[in-house]
């Protein structure tokens, strides 16, 4: 902190003493964090527990079943030009989501620069990538249901729990992505209209937090459901 720090900014203690001080003062605990951002973080914390419950439930049923677990790598394979490629669609979906996280991070940056036009376009691209992710998921579900005959109560490849956990976990994640696309579009058009001109554009960062979280959950689903 420079000596020319704004005079109405209170002196802030760093490190562990700072944590104690932040929580002990009779003001807000999270200093200089917009309230919307704290609330989004707390919401994401609760969402973490929801997704963890799903993944732990998946772990439990996968460990308890005495029937072999279906080969995920084979089931999610695509045949391109006669070539059998395992997990191809899932890999593409993963890269799309990471790309959208990147454009979102840039949107947050341009938001704080008050560059409305660039922020709008970056958020629009993020939303479109998100929508294409949901589209691919719809394709994946259709293929699984109609071609592979996987149902929540059973399938031909092995343990019946495969379908139940798959539709539950990816369905809930897909719902989050869909909600995120709508959220992104609403905020993007409001940014373009100049609705947030009186703020510091922390709304873009808050929207970004939600979007990065959706990407974060996918990292765990990809590791535990598709790769394990």
């Amino acid at each position: 902190m420079s000596s020319q720090a704004i005079s109405d900014t209170p002196e802030q203690i760093e490190g562990w003493d700072g944590v104690v001080d932040d929580f002990a003062t009779e003001e807000e605990a999270f200093k200089q964090v917009p309230w919307g951002k704290s609330m989004m973080w707390i919401f994401l914390l609760s969402d973490t527990f929801i997704f963890s419950c799903f993944l732990i439930g998946y772990m439990a049923v996968r460990m308890t079943t005495t029937v072999p677990w279906p080969p995920a790598s084979e089931i999610f394979a695509l045949t391109i030009a006669g070539e059998h490629v395992p997990l191809l669609l899932i890999a593409i979906m993963t890269f799309i989501l990471i790309t959208s996280s990147g454009t979102m991070a840039l949107a947050v940056n341009f938001g704080y620069r008050r560059d409305r036009k660039t922020t709008f376009w970056l958020m629009l691209v993020t939303a479109l990538l998100g929508a294409s992710f949901v589209g691919m998921q719809a394709f994946e579900w259709t293929k699984l249901i109609t071609e592979e005959g996987i149902r929540p109560w059973g399938n031909e490849f092995g343990a019946a729990q495969f379908g139940a956990t798959f539709f539950m976990i990816t369905g809930f994640h897909g719902m989050h992505v869909t909600a995120g696309v709508i959220y992104l579009l609403v905020v993007a058009f409001r940014v373009r209209r100049g609705k947030y001109e009186h703020t510091d554009y922390e709304i873009v960062e808050i929207t970004g937090l939600y979007w990065h979280f959706v990407d974060l959950v996918w990292v765990f689903i990809f590791a535990f459901y598709y790769l394990w």
């Binding site: 562990w16 999270f30 964090v33 914390l45 527990f49 990065h212 990407d215 974060l216």
Partner: peptide
């Protein structure tokens, strides 16, 4: 996960009070 949380979600630049409030509870899992 670490890269997304710390850089994309800006956690590494937040104050320690927020970091602890958000990142410690998941350890219960």
């Amino acid at each position: 996960a670490g890269l997304i949380i710390s850089v994309f979600m800006h956690m590494m630049w937040e104050r320690l009070a927020l970091i602890y409030a958000i990142l410690l509870p998941p350890l219960l899992l």
